[in-house]
Amino acid sequence: MTAVLETPPKIDDRRAPAPKSPQRTLSRVADALLTGISKIAAIAVLLAVWEAAPRLGLVDATFLPPFSTVVQAWWDLAVSGKLLDNTQASLVRSLSGFGLAVAAAVPLGLLIGWYKPVATLLGPLLEVFRNTAALALLPVFVLLLGIGETSKIAIVFYACAWPILLNTISAVRAVDPTLLRLARSMDLSGFRLFQKVILPAAVPTVFTGIRLAGAVSILVLVAAEMVGAKAGLGYLINASQFNFAIPQMYAGIITISAIGVLFNQVLVSLERRFTSWRVPVGA
């Protein structure tokens, strides 16, 4: 459909989509099935190797227990409620830091992107901090804010703010100049210009930043929980390792990657919703 529309058609050239034949539907189902299978294949192979390698004695089963043992440990943790408690602790920290970062970095990024003086003022500061690894500042956060929740939420906030901030700034700067000229020719007020042109134009790039921040929020949190915490998935992994509860450690790791994938999926579908105009129909 899209291809038809993009070749410059005569104005009255309105082609209706071809009616679906049962044969085509069938082949489409087969196609979907095939894509589905090939998508799972790699993960299935990984799990199979994980299961087989310790059993065949290729690796030490003490340090890499078979996948089924890990699943059993995961189930025990889930039933005992420990998994839920730790996951909850992690999610609360991660989501609060992430949410605060979105709430603060998007408006700040819009300001910096739009107002030259603000950019000149804050530019050097941004340059210094964005090139300092967030985790290098973890001790500072612990010293200043203690080892409680505040320091953990703060470090997640700090780490998440950067991708959002930088993407928002470049989003505003990359708004098509023709659109700005159009808005100016229509004598749009500053507020209207922001609301109707700059914000919607910036949404896709801002979302890229938000998606990056989603990944960062989990990454940084786990590291923070490994350093000083009494709960959380990072704590679970670390404590399990100290107590030589290796299957539990792997169970924690699996949970974290599952949360990471899920979080990303949620953000991707949100992004799709807000930027549907960018995706050609049928693609």
């Binding site: 098509d176 023709t178 659109l179 000229r181 159009l182 100016r184 020719s185 229509m186 004598d187 109707k196 042109v197 919607p200 134009a201 949404v203 930027t275 105009w277 960018r278």
Partner: peptide
């Protein structure tokens, strides 16, 4: 200054892609 008594049509169309 600019005003709505004059309408400009640009070479690059200047359409809002999200609308």
């Amino acid at each position: 200054g600019p005003g709505l008594d004059r309408g400009i049509v640009f070479q690059q169309y200047a359409l809002l892609p999200w609308r």
